[in-house]
Design a protein around this nucleic acid. Structure first.
Lengths: 167, 167
DNA sequence: TATTGTTATACTCTATAACTATA
DNA sequence: TATAGTTATAGAGTATAACAATA
């Protein structure tokens, strides 16, 4: 910064064998694609959030499942799988892990004994509460990057995209 | 809509044993989180795009790598890994697949023989060109969901988020 | 010794197929 | 037969550790 300047900015002795690691890459049209930018943002958010919730023993995806169960007690695993567009087997394994850690309970429904009603346990509610604090800290950090009123706009447009390509 | 209304909206014969599969779930605070909506949008876009580019034999992630190589010929695998925040081993395997399909070439650099200069092959350029058409069709579909001038705003805000949580 | 890259190995997330239990 | 759920297995995608080649 305010250092002694190089009086004769001499050329590197040999042609740069490797562009400086700091030099940003040329992205071309990629930078103008919403698909690309959404993916980069998602990946950065996920990484950051995984770090924040790791001490609690839940991943961001597991947080979503717990939160959804909180608001939809008695949900069946098939309905939950449909909502997240997962195969029922994928969700079955995820639920097994959550149940193994005592965060959710699965009880056969009295009426139709084919399906199981899912619900949070007390431990699940506790983990959810603590993870929520970390999630919301991240959301506040994002607000600092947005102009006033921009959050609802972004939420709406992202929701439209998810709905349009959802099926 | 303008249909004949149900004169006597009768109750279901028995208590719904299972909420209609169509009934949307209650998301609670989840719906207001940018992290959640970005993930849902990303997942829908990725799924749609994977379907569109599957006939070409490339995934959306591979498309990004090919496009980045097109604009940065001679790039080293380490620099590419840093740009995408992947471990060099993860990228090494991805590049091996692309090279195995003849889409990229890797040549030891003459000056510093430790690193390999990556470049697209003719086949790689061809696949990239054809995948680009499909990507851009998806981008146009997204524009139909946005108001005028909203794309640059979204791109900028998503870029800020990726940069802020990037490290 | 430090840097670039590869191989061996493992873990997570997802899916398809085959199965069990219930209706 | 149809529906809800589980288990076995396999495929991406990613990471850590150990290694080889080059500087």
């Amino acid at each position: 910064m305010g250092h002694a300047r190089n009086p004769t900015p001499r050329r590197p002795a040999r042609a740069a064998p490797h562009p400086a690691a700091a030099a940003p890459l040329e992205l071309g049209k990629l930078a103008g694609y919403l698909g690309y930018q959404i993916r980069q943002a998602q990946s950065a958010i996920f990484r950051d959030l995984a770090r924040a919730t790791r001490p609690l023993g839940v991943t961001p995806g597991e947080f979503s499942l717990l939160a959804t169960l909180q608001h939809n007690p008695g949900l069946s695993s098939l309905r939950l799988a449909q909502a997240y567009r997962l195969d029922k087997t994928s969700l079955s394994l995820a639920l097994k892990r959550l149940a193994g850690r005592g965060l959710i309970a699965s009880n056969r429904n009295a009426g139709d004994r084919r399906y199981h009603a899912l619900a949070l346990t007390a431990a699940g509610r506790d983990v959810l509460r603590r993870a929520t604090r970390r999630i919301e800290a991240q959301e506040r950090a994002m607000d600092a990057l947005l102009g006033p009123g921009e959050r609802p706009l972004l939420l709406d447009r992202l929701g439209r995209i998810a709905a349009a390509f959802g099926r």
